[in-house]
């Protein structure tokens, strides 16, 4: 449940916050949401990553579909990176890494303040 919530919230942050702020603000937001939700370790990484990665990938696909502009292929040629589709994928992967590590950081940050359960028998 937390996984899905974090994914969806990350997507929403990209869609609604990213247009007005640089990417690192988005990273901080995702980290904070991850901490607040209390998503667990590696699953927070996947959720934040999928959220931001899919959102970025989706945006590139959406703009390409909407405009039909040849720019991605041209940019890929100038950057020596094959095709525009490949650039979309790179954008998605970069989004995944940024979102993932942000969420993971948030998750680990929350763990710092989590008290150890004291009613456990520790032998």
């Amino acid at each position: 449940m937390k996984f899905i919530a974090l994914t969806i919230l990350s997507v929403l942050v990209v869609v609604f916050v990213n247009p007005f702020t640089p990417f690192w603000i988005v990273m901080i937001c995702i980290g904070m949401i991850s901490a607040l939700l209390g998503a667990k370790g590696f699953s927070s990484f996947l959720a934040g990553g999928l959220g931001m990665g899919l959102a970025w990938l989706g945006q590139t696909v959406f703009i390409s579909y909407q405009t039909g502009s040849p720019l991605p292929d041209q940019m890929a040629e100038i950057m020596g990176l094959g095709s525009g589709v490949f650039l979309s994928m790179i954008t998605g992967i970069l989004g995944f890494l940024l979102g993932g590590f942000s969420a993971y950081s948030g998750s680990l940050f929350r763990r710092l303040f989590k008290k150890r359960p004291d009613n456990l028998y520790r032998g």
Binding site: P22, W56, I63, P72, I90
Partner: peptide, 21 residues
């Protein structure tokens, strides 16, 4: 810098829109 260039909300992706859009 890679991020400002390929961030879909600020990078070159935004230059795909034509003036009438």
């Amino acid at each position: 810098p890679v991020a400002p260039l390929i961030d879909p909300n600020h990078g070159f992706w935004q230059n795909m829109y034509s003036e009438d859009e």
